[in-house]
Amino acid sequence: MNLVLPSYREQAPEVAARFAKLYERAVVLEVKELARRFASDEGTVAALEGISFRAHRRELICVIGPSGCGKSTLIRILAGLDEQSDGQMLLDGKPVRGPGPDRGMVFQGYTLFPWRTVIQNVMFGLEMRGHDRSTAELEAMEWVEIVGLGRFANAYPYQLSGGMKQRVAIARALANRPRILFMDEPFAALDAQTRAQMQSYLLQLWKQIDITIVFVTHDLEEAVYLADRIVVLGTHPGHIKEIVEVPVPRPRTREQMISPVFIATKKHLESLIHARDTDTETESLPPIRMTQVGDEVE
C-alpha cells in the first residue's frame, strides 16, 4: 500500500491556521543542536546528534522513534538527569542545567515514595521548596482532587493500581507548578484499557491547566492521539527525521482513531520509523515447515 500524505497545510486550511496560531505563542523550551556521546572501548559513540526543536506554550509534543534511538536519553537530558555533550537548552530563553523544579518529570515506573501516602507524595516538591506543612498540604490536596483521588489521599502507594499510581505521579509533578512537564513512556506499563483511559484523561487535564508537555512514547497511536506535533527520531546516531504536525482536529476523541486523517498520519509515521536504515531486520521468516500438508490455518 502506498499512502503518501500530502502536506497537511495544503490539505486543510483550518489545520494550517491552527499551527500558525500555535507558532505565535511564546517558546517555553528551545533545544539547540543537542548531542550526547558516550565513551566506549571503540572510541566515542554518538547517541544523539544535532537535536533542535522548540516547544511553544501549552503545546503537547510527542517524541517517537525505534528502540535505541535515544528518546529516553533525550528526555533525561531535558529533565537534567543526564548531561549533554554538546548543545544547549533554553527554558523561557534562559539556559538550564541539572534537574530543577521548573521542569517536572513523570517516569514509566511511577517512582512514588512508598513510605509516603498519596497526599504526602504530592506535597513532596512543595515541602522541598520550603512551604510549611499545612499550606503544602492544602495545595497538594487540591491536586489530589484534580486527579480524582480525593478518596485515596491517605492511602499508601502499594494500595493503589498502576493507573492510580501514575495519576499521583502526575499530580506530584504538577503540584510544583513546573513550566514544562516531561513524560517518559508514562503509560507503557499499564494494560491497554487503563492506558486508553489515562490518555483521554491526560488530554482533559492538559486542556485545563497552563502546562507544556513533552511526551516520549513508542506507541504511534498514542502519539497521534495526544500530540500537536510529533518529533520523529531515527537511529545511529539518534537524530530528528521529521517533525510531524498532526492534522487530526481537536478536541480529540477515540472515535477519530478510525478516521482517514488519523490513519494516514499513523501510516506516515510508520513509514518514517520503519524506513530501511537498519540492515539487521528481515522482511519475513524463512519458509521452514513444521506441520503436515493439509493442516493449514489460513
Partner: peptide
C-alpha cells in the same frame, strides 16, 4: 532505586534533602 532519587531531584530536592527525605526513609 535510583529513579526515586531522580524523581526527588526533578521535584527540587537539595542534596541534604535527598539524604534525609529520600535515602533514609527509603
Amino acid at each position: 532505586e535510583l529513579p526515586l532519587i531522580e524523581a526527588a531531584q526533578t521535584l527540587g530536592a537539595s542534596k541534604r534533602q535527598l539524604v534525609f527525605k529520600v535515602v533514609v526513609p527509603g
